[in-house]
Design a protein around this nucleic acid. Structure first.
Lengths: 205, 205
DNA sequence: AAATACGGCTAATTTGAATTAGCCTGATTT
DNA sequence: AAATCAGGCTAATTCAAATTAGCCGTATTT
């Protein structure tokens, strides 16, 4: 990783812990192992570092979205997996999603940074809602839609069903972001959540 | 409202929009209608203003908790209401809770401020989790517990049942905090959520 | 191998925000 | 009614953080 990338990386770490305004250019430089003025060889100013992080995030998520489309036009295939839904599979799905979002450094830091900065600019609010509200609901909603069609889930309002699956996961994620020591507690609760979701919505019970 | 209180009020408004670090002592003074140095006649420094807000919040919530205990040791009575649970009542309960938390100025501003500042100090994380995670879950859990005993709700894991009721409400609250224009959309979804919750967990259906 | 670009450094410079000093007025106390 | 206090103001002061200037060695290009 070259210096320019390292700056973004360390800046994101700091922004996610303290928020933009509480991070000094010198702090970032320290972590990178250079002096503050040297940063300006790479970025016009502090704001440009922040902007570059947002750009990089957009790049990554578009990439991911593209990858999803490939598997997603094959979404029927994806859904095929769920035609034979079992509690175990649902548990695996939920846990994987949860742990990936929680432990993947880039995701976690970026989410925390947006949490802090979301009220600062309308744009950031939009990004937050897209990433952590609308995209997950729409993707999971599609999957649950297939499952309802396939007859493995009850024919309830799919949008609400998705909310019932996702909102608790989101909720537990925010708890862990705030108090990482509660992760074990939340993992246990996550399992209970999914099992009960399956009992309530599943048809094979 | 005297100047000293007005300072807290205006400071909270600003902190909830921009976060502590982005608010200047002069901004607060402007809104109060005095000059920055005059603030120091009332508070030692900027941090003391923030601290006073937290203290005031603690005072208010303790007061509220006490009021709840009075009605809460009569919690059986509270629960009595729910022994004859109907979808309408559940809807009313959910909407009232949601709209109160959303529209009550003090609640909304304080919640937004904590959202921004939660990662800054361990104490604030604790306060956040108490107010928006553990207290609501514990209070609503108690109510649902009574309802299960009274036979109006299925005998599922009450902790998870409470999570299934509360997490979506919390989730929609955060959406409205971030994008107030989505309130109508969320209110509609709130109703659907509660109706479906009732269909899933209610026994009289 | 000269010229140039790159990326680091130290030493200013600038800026802007928090806080302090010290004065003034009008109310309250003694 | 003198003395004190409360709470406002303007004019410093302080200080920290962002940014700029300008130097220098190394690597790359021509």
């Amino acid at each position: 990783m070259n210096t320019k990338e390292k700056i973004l990386d360390e800046a994101l770490t700091l922004f996610s812990e303290k928020g933009y305004a509480n991070v000094f250019v010198g702090d970032i430089a320290d972590r990178v192992g250079i002096k503050a003025p040297s940063l300006y060889k790479h970025y016009k100013n502090k704001q440009a570092i922040f902007d570059a992080i947002i750009d990089e995030m957009n790049r990554r998520f578009e990439e991911q979205a593209k990858a999803m489309q490939i598997n997603g036009n094959d979404a029927a295939k994806d859904a095929g997996i769920y035609e034979t839904l079992s509690e175990d599979k649902l548990l695996k799905l939920g846990r994987e999603f949860f742990l990936y979002y929680l432990h993947d450094d880039y995701n976690r830091k970026f989410r925390k940074m947006l949490t802090i900065e979301q009220f600062h600019e309308k744009d950031l609010a939009k990004v937050y809602s897209k990433l952590y509200v609308d995209d997950p609901l729409s993707y999971q909603g599609m999957l649950f839609g297939f499952m309802v069609t396939a007859g493995v889930l009850k024919t309830e309002n799919v949008q609400v069903m998705t909310l019932h699956f996702y909102a608790p996961i989101y909720f537990m994620l925010t708890v862990c972001d705030r108090e990482p020591e509660r992760e074990p507690e939340m993992l246990k609760l996550l399992d209970e959540h999914i099992k009960q979701f399956d009992r309530l919505y599943g048809r094979n019970n």
